[in-house]
């Protein structure tokens, strides 16, 4: 028995590899999870879009649960996501704030004028510096931030109805309790 068992080693190793490869088929190699989840959200203050003189201070958001949605007028996937954000804006339970990433105020405002504005307020990040602090590497990205100012979830890529219902809404309910 023992003498022939060793000839099965290659087959066994192969099946282990197959298991991983199969699992790998359903993973997205492009998605990089953020190390910031579970950590305090970087504090920043930035001018508010189309509201000259006013600044958005993330420190003022303490005690509130909110979404920070990173978007830009030049980003195609953001347009796909926009209807979902508009839908969310109708409900009072979700406060969505925007971070306009590497964009000009005019172009961003033009998109909002045409498609509607789902945000309570939009901070601008013209040079992408805040984006770097948040580890943004592709737009859109959305952060769920709790009352203590800790990032609880990061969505990379557009929020879909499915993600909204299965992940974000339950999380928000839990955080708001």
């Amino acid at each position: 028995m023992k003498a022939t068992a060793k000839f099965l080693i290659p087959l066994a190793l192969f099946f282990v590899a197959v298991g991983f490869l199969f699992k790998g088929l359903y993973l997205d190699p492009h998605e990089v999870p953020s190390p910031l989840v579970g950590k305090p959200a970087p504090v920043f203050s930035a001018p508010i879009l189309s509201d000259a003189g006013k600044t958005f201070n993330s420190a003022d958001m303490r005690g509130k649960v909110y979404l920070l949605n990173v978007w830009a007028s030049w980003c195609g996937a953001c347009r796909d996501e926009h209807p979902v954000l508009m839908e969310m804006a109708k409900s009072d339970q979700i406060a969505t704030y925007g971070l306009d990433y590497k964009d000009t105020d005019q172009e961003a405002q033009a998109v909002l004028d045409a498609n509607g504005n789902p945000y309570k307020a939009i901070a601008t990040d013209a040079n992408g510096k805040i984006g770097i602090d948040y580890g943004v590497y592709g737009v859109p990205e959305t952060y769920v931030i709790d009352k203590a100012g800790v990032i609880r979830y990061k969505q990379i890529g557009p929020i879909t109805d499915e993600i909204l219902l299965t992940k974000i809404v339950p999380l928000l309910k839990e955080l708001q309790r």
Partner: peptide, 8 residues
């Protein structure tokens, strides 16, 4: 960089 983007 690692603090922002991870070991990736």
């Amino acid at each position: 960089l690692v603090a922002r983007y991870g070991d990736f």
